[in-house]
Design a protein around this nucleic acid. Structure first.
Lengths: 238, 238
DNA sequence: ACGAACCTGCACACTACTGTGCAAGTTATC
DNA sequence: GATAACTTGCACAGTAGTGTGCAGGTTCGT
């Protein structure tokens, strides 16, 4: 029969179901790292029993999400370099915004459960790069000098996670989220909000490239109408 | 039959054990909101069975911690007012630092479990006060104008929680933590790190008052010489 | 020193979740 | 349309946690 033996006769709908499980798991684990397989399966439109047809056990499912997420993130960040540590920071933040979904799952799993260590290990290179750039930025006087580099590095991590959460909660457009994440990172790094805006607008590399927009909610207004006098240079959203 | 019937004959060591349970629960719940009663009891030096002599069930134990924490926090923040929204923010942040332990437990319980709503309700007045001051600060041009007030308010919340976590992790002195929390809040609010330092140093109300120090690690240097130019003392951990 | 308050240890029932086996049904694919 | 792949549903065992009852020991208070 055909050329089966080696070529896994993987049925098409089975692959779809596998993806559905992964998607549902990501969605639920993002809110509760201890979500039950029952809930995940149901959310994916399958029975709990069926999940074990795709993953040997709960750990394997989570691990799959974990390593895939780590790969996407590091792939998105690799080869990110810039002389100016401020711009480097903004770049990293912006690229994390392009991978929000995965970043948020990783962040959730990094805090609790037996996966803490593995997530930490997967993100180690990124952490050391951050640490490196922060130290460099402090030495060169481009970042805040009023706290130790380690502390600043960690605050930057948390800051980005927070704003990523908030951005998805508000279902910001791709462009708005892009800008907001950079603003938050630069603020934490010590810049004033005006300095941040100037820096962002003066740096073409930080402009929003909507090649890979996330369908958070479809395109949206450029700027959520914030009552009073608008400031915000509004940059060419192109 | 002394005069008992009404006067609760509450034994002394029993009260101590009750406190030990609460303390242990706070310590464990801060790291894992689902910590088992077994673990809590053991950490308090008691058997699991004994816990049920003090609390009817798990929920009641957690609720006790919750309401006590909410009371301490709101008590510490009540009657905090200032014309300058920036200073108001720094004041709130600093006073939260004085209640770090409770704040961190609350923050942990606010995210997960069936207590989310109750914590949210308990902190509602604080949230609305924050929202109020942020809106006012934006209108007056003292806070950043580049994002909606709601977003800024939430980022401020997360920012303070993050730095509180980091400060305890590093076992900062009372004075260092005091300053760090204010710096983080002001940064998120849009000030540059130099502006923040100037504002803090120019405002007597924001000076560190070590009347109520938390014994995070024993008294430490007062550290008045923060200087705008040189490195932060950082303390050598232990 | 006496009694009551408190703690321990154990047993037990109950709930919720994981992981597995198997029979029977459904569906993609050749 | 036949077959293998996939799914379902159920039953079952195992784990971990909660909440309760009770017998017997320890310790506080008077």
């Amino acid at each position: 029969m055909t050329q089966a033996t080696l070529a896994r006769t993987l049925r098409r709908d089975a692959a779809e179901n596998r993806e559905a499980i992964l998607a549902a798991a990501k969605a639920l684990l993002r809110r509760d790292p201890d979500a039950s397989l029952e809930a995940i399966a149901q959310s994916a439109g399958l029975s709990r029993r069926a999940v074990y047809g795709h993953f040997a056990n709960r750990d394997e499912l989570v691990s799959e999400i974990l390593t895939a997420g780590a790969e996407r993130i590091t792939a998105a960040l690799v080869a990110t370099a810039h002389d100016d540590p401020r711009i480097w920071l903004a770049l990293i933040a912006a690229r994390l915004w392009d991978e929000v979904e995965d970043v948020r799952v990783m962040a959730q799993l990094a805090v609790r459960g037996p996966f803490r260590d593995r997530v930490g290990a997967a993100l180690a290179p990124l952490r050391s790069a951050l640490r490196e750039n922060v130290g460099c930025g402090i030495r060169e006087g481009m970042l805040r000098r009023d706290m130790p580099a380690d502390t600043l590095a960690r605050l930057l991590e948390d800051s980005v996670i927070s704003v990523l959460d908030e951005a998805t909660r508000r279902e910001l457009s791709s462009a708005d989220g892009h800008r907001l994440v950079m603003l938050a990172a630069l603020s934490t790094a010590g810049l004033s909000w005006r300095e941040s805006a100037v820096l962002i607008d003066a740096t073409p590399a930080l402009a929003h490239d909507d090649a890979h927009q996330h369908p958070t909610h479809a395109d949206y207004q450029q700027h959520p109408t914030h009552g009073a006098a608008h400031q915000h240079p509004t940059q060419a959203a192109r």
